[in-house]
Amino acid sequence: MKFHTRKWVKPQDLNPNGTLFGGRLLEWIDEELGIYAIIQLEIPRTVTKYMSEIDFVSSAKQGDIIEIGMEVLAFGNSSITLKCEVRNKLTHKIIIILDKIVMVSLDEEGNPKKHGKTKVEYVSDRLKDK
C-alpha cells in the first residue's frame, strides 16, 4: 500500500461528536482516487462507479494528520480497480478500509471508454517513452 496524500483534520472537518466527519473523509478519498485514476489511465473523464462496503475502523480528531493509501488491484478494459486505506500518519492506526473501488473512463457521451492500460505507470516510465 502506497500512501499518497496527507490531510490535516481541521475544525470544519468535524462532526457534532468532535471527530472527523465520515462524509468529509469519503470526499477526500473519492477525490484522491479520481485524480490517481485519471493520471494512470490518462483519460480526464474518469468517474467512480463502485465502492465496496466502507469499514470505519477508528476515528480521527482535530489536529490529527491522516494519510490516504491505495493500491491497484486490476485493470479492466475501461476501468481500474483499487483498494484504499486511510490511517493516522503518526500512529499508523487504520481509520477506514475500502476493499474495492472501481473507477471507469468515459467517452464524450458518457459510455465506457477503453484505456489500453495493463499496469501501473510511474513518471519515470512515461519519461522513457519521450
Rank of each mutant, 00 (worst) to 15 (best):
M1G: 13
T5D: 14
R6N: 13
R6W: 00
K7T: 00
W8A: 13
W8Q: 12
W8M: 12
W8G: 04
K10Q: 15
P16S: 07
G22H: 02
W28Y: 06
W28F: 06
I29D: 12
I29A: 04
D30G: 11
L33H: 06
A37G: 08
I38E: 08
I38Y: 02
Q40M: 05
L41Q: 12
L41W: 06
L41D: 07
I43P: 03
V47W: 09
V47H: 12
T48G: 12
T48H: 12
Y50H: 14
S52N: 12
E53Y: 02
V57I: 13
V57A: 13
S58D: 15
S58W: 06
S59W: 01
S59N: 14
A60G: 10
G63H: 08
G63W: 00
D64N: 14
E67T: 14
I68D: 14
G69E: 15
M70F: 08
M70L: 14
V72Q: 10
L73W: 02
A74K: 13
G76L: 05
G76T: 09
N77I: 02
S78A: 15
S78W: 00
S78Q: 06
S79I: 03
I80S: 10
I80K: 03
T81R: 14
L82E: 06
E85M: 03
K89M: 11
K89Y: 13
L90Y: 13
L90H: 15
H92C: 03
I94C: 12
I94S: 07
I95H: 12
I95P: 06
I97V: 15
L98V: 14
D99T: 02
D99S: 09
V102T: 14
M103K: 14
M103S: 05
V104K: 02
S105V: 01
D107K: 03
D107N: 14
E108G: 10
N111C: 07
K113T: 03
T118L: 10
T118M: 05
K119T: 10
E121Q: 14
E121C: 00
S124A: 10
D125K: 03
D129G: 00
K130H: 08
